[in-house]
Design a protein around this nucleic acid. Structure first.
Length: 408
DNA sequence: TGTCCACTGGAAGGGAGGGCTT
DNA sequence: AAGCCCTCCCTTCCAGTGGACA
């Protein structure tokens, strides 16, 4: 039998492809249509070299407008040019990963040489003091990038920003600059006036890319990946159009390009055409939802499942009460503890944020006030993915129709 | 016009699970 | 080993509320 890998090896042109330039972590050295923003930020950072400290900065812009890529690029350049000449640290933190004050201060304190701070266990006081002493002894300039800073502030308040600024004012030999990245234009409204005035930040807005901008970006990457001849113009145009319809998100466009190329390769097709793009788009959308569902905590899975069940039994728009009843039934059938309605309310808000459901508060007058909950994704696929969880094996043979009748 | 329903969402706190210090 | 401290997940308690209905 023919070796399954033969078809790949026979296609010698594939060996010259370099698809890693489509990875989200890839930072290009050329950023089309972001030259102006890049210069603004670079001018600010450059103050380090004349012994001044850069201003704090908040960068606004929708997702996929190049905020993170620009800042990472500048960070790389900054470290490279100051290497061996000046102590400069560039710390990039994503607040979804570093989502509490402890881990942010710990990361900053450990970025420079000094006493190692453990990732948990110490009191906040001790973490703060150790970090401050480390940084001051090190004698240099730190730029801390807090990506998705709005999420952090919503979750924990703005105390962290205050603490970092306080630390900066206590430093004798070093300085800390905060660069916040957010896609929420109203972000600074969340801040305490005390924090806001002290932050005294410079605002930079990244506007969404146009369809033509995205075409340029894609063509740039295609050249880098050495696949320009493999991708048709029509496919590039289609991806650009789709992306500009979705707030000019270049990240999504690049991901869609990668998936389209991979699809054409595995189909053994000679070029990437529009049809590949459409299939790739569906695949990406499905994968994203599936991944989110799979990583939900068990209780939340049961909650989503109960909403899917309601939808399948004809209740596409359910009240919180309906959902709670359905959830209670499912949870007891699954043999897991039943949580309180208050906890369910919070979980519903989280699911709303994730885009899995939409929940709108509605008053029914005499009949109270509730949230109208609607599943935003396909119910049968949702069911399938959630039931893959081994902890819910008892629900595999669950009689949905019977249960639905019981509830109503 | 006031009532009252079915919630919403804030506040406080408990306890488990992680880890450190002494 | 005992004593802290942190976060996460959850409960308990409760004041607040938009609007249909009497």
């Amino acid at each position: 039998m023919e070796n399954i890998f033969n078809k790949y090896l026979e296609r010698t042109e594939l060996n010259t492809f370099d698809l890693k330039v489509f990875e989200p972590s890839f930072v290009p050295s050329r950023m089309p249509h972001r030259e102006k923003e890049m210069t603004l930020i670079a001018d600010n950072f450059a103050k380090i070299f004349i012994g001044a400290s850069p201003k704090n900065e908040i960068i606004y812009g929708k997702s996929g407008t190049g905020k993170t890529a620009v800042i990472k690029f500048l960070g790389r350049e900054l470290k490279e040019i100051s290497h061996g000449k000046k102590n400069v640290e560039f710390i990039y933190l994503n607040c979804q990963v570093k989502d509490n004050a402890y881990s942010v201060i710990e990361s900053i304190g450990n970025a420079v040489k000094g006493e190692q701070i453990p990732f948990t266990g110490w009191s906040m006081d001790k973490v703060y003091t150790t970090a401050r002493n480390n940084i001051d002894r090190w004698n240099g300039s730190i730029i801390v990038v807090l990506d998705e800073i709005d999420r952090f502030v919503i979750k924990n308040g703005d105390d962290l920003l205050y603490q970092i600024m306080l630390m900066n004012s206590e430093l004798q030999n070093s300085s800390i600059t905060i660069v916040g990245i957010t896609n929420d234009l109203k972000f600074s409204e969340f801040l305490d006036p005390r924090v806001k005035s002290r932050l005294n930040e410079e605002k930079i807005v990244f506007t969404p890319y146009s369809s033509d901008d995205i075409t340029d970006i894609l063509n740039d990457r295609l050249k880098l990946a050495n696949v320009s001849n493999f991708v048709t113009e029509g496919a590039v145009r289609l991806i650009s159009t789709l992306a500009s319809q979705e707030n000019g998100d270049a990240r999504k466009a690049i991901e869609l390009m990668k998936t389209s190329i991979q699809l054409a390769i595995s189909n053994n097709d000679n070029t990437v055409e529009e049809r590949h793009v459409f299939i790739a788009k569906n695949k990406l959308e499905y994968d994203a939802v599936a991944e989110t569902l799979k990583t939900l905590p068990l209780q939340t899975k049961v909650l989503v499942l109960s909403i899917a069940l309601l939808k399948e039994s004809g209740i596409a728009q359910a009240s919180t009460g309906d959902v709670f009843d359905a959830y209670r039934n499912l949870a007891s059938s699954a043999g897991i503890p039943i949580l309180t309605p208050r906890r369910i309310t919070d979980m519903l808000s989280d699911l709303d944020m994730l885009g899995i459901i939409s929940a709108k508060v509605k008053s029914m007058g005499r009949y109270g006030r509730t949230k109208i909950i609607e599943l935003s994704i396909n119910s049968s696929e949702t069911k399938k993915i959630i039931l893959e969880d081994e902890n819910l094996s008892k629900l595999k043979n669950y009689n949905y129709a019977k249960q639905a009748k019981l509830i109503f």
